[in-house]
Design a protein around this nucleic acid. Structure first.
Lengths: 118, 118
DNA sequence: GGTAGATATCGATGGTTGTCGATATCCGAC
DNA sequence: GTCGGATATCGACAACCATCGATATCTACC
């Protein structure tokens, strides 16, 4: 590979490994993948991801997402940023509004890592 | 269902939902599932799970696991407890030794939730 | 260019978590 | 029964994180 694992985003790193049930993860692999799971391991972010994924056209405007939560606008923005930074959400600005879209291949790679592909 | 979501272990709860890309998770569902992902979202626990899963016969003795890490024995024990409590690892004591085994159906349910089954 | 609305950033704070050393518990062997 | 080794629990501490209010930035529109 051309880049070190540590230079990759978590979603890129997760595609590098065979299923964790087949061969033990190296320490470096685990360190690269854990941030992706950490991003998912929050109830608010789980729901945000789910809301975006299940939204029509596979994308959702931030203005639609906040209403589902009893949280401040900065907090929602923070969670979306976390999901974006690990590579789970794509971000597009159209006019005043910002739209997020799920990077489905990222979820697919994670599923493969967890052994789903078998 | 007979039990409330909140009475279930995370691995039981994760089997309750359609893939999060198909329908938005409820707040209650997300709260039930997040602990399972939180348990996975640590590099040491990822490697522990992987080591156990990839070990011969699908189970591993604690005495075999500690050597792979530069961590104290209580820390390894703590991480194994976390994985056991959320339902990802089964625990069996044979004599002085304790063996852990991956609950593969738990991983399978998680994969289904993340959309792997499609 | 000034204003209003949408989203992001900043700084602070309380709660959570990974780690450790010390200690407890459990079990087999002698 | 007691000794030694394997594992778990406890209490403490530092690092991390979710959340907030205040504020900044960006864009369309008048």
């Amino acid at each position: 590979m051309s880049k070190s694992l540590l230079e990759l985003t978590p979603v890129e790193a997760v595609a590098c490994c065979s299923p964790l049930t087949k061969a033990p993860l190296s320490a470096e692999q685990a360190e690269s993948i854990a941030p992706l799971l950490k991003a998912l391991a929050d109830p608010v972010r789980l729901r945000l991801l789910s809301l975006v994924a299940a939204h029509e056209a596979g994308e959702a405007c931030v203005c639609d997402l906040g209403d589902a939560f009893d949280l401040s606008q900065p907090t929602i923005s923070h969670h979306l940023k976390v999901l974006h930074e690990v590579g789970l959400l794509d971000r597009t600005k159209r006019g005043v509004w910002v739209y997020y879209r799920v990077r489905t291949e990222a979820l697919g790679d994670l599923v493969a890592l967890l052994g789903g592909a078998a």
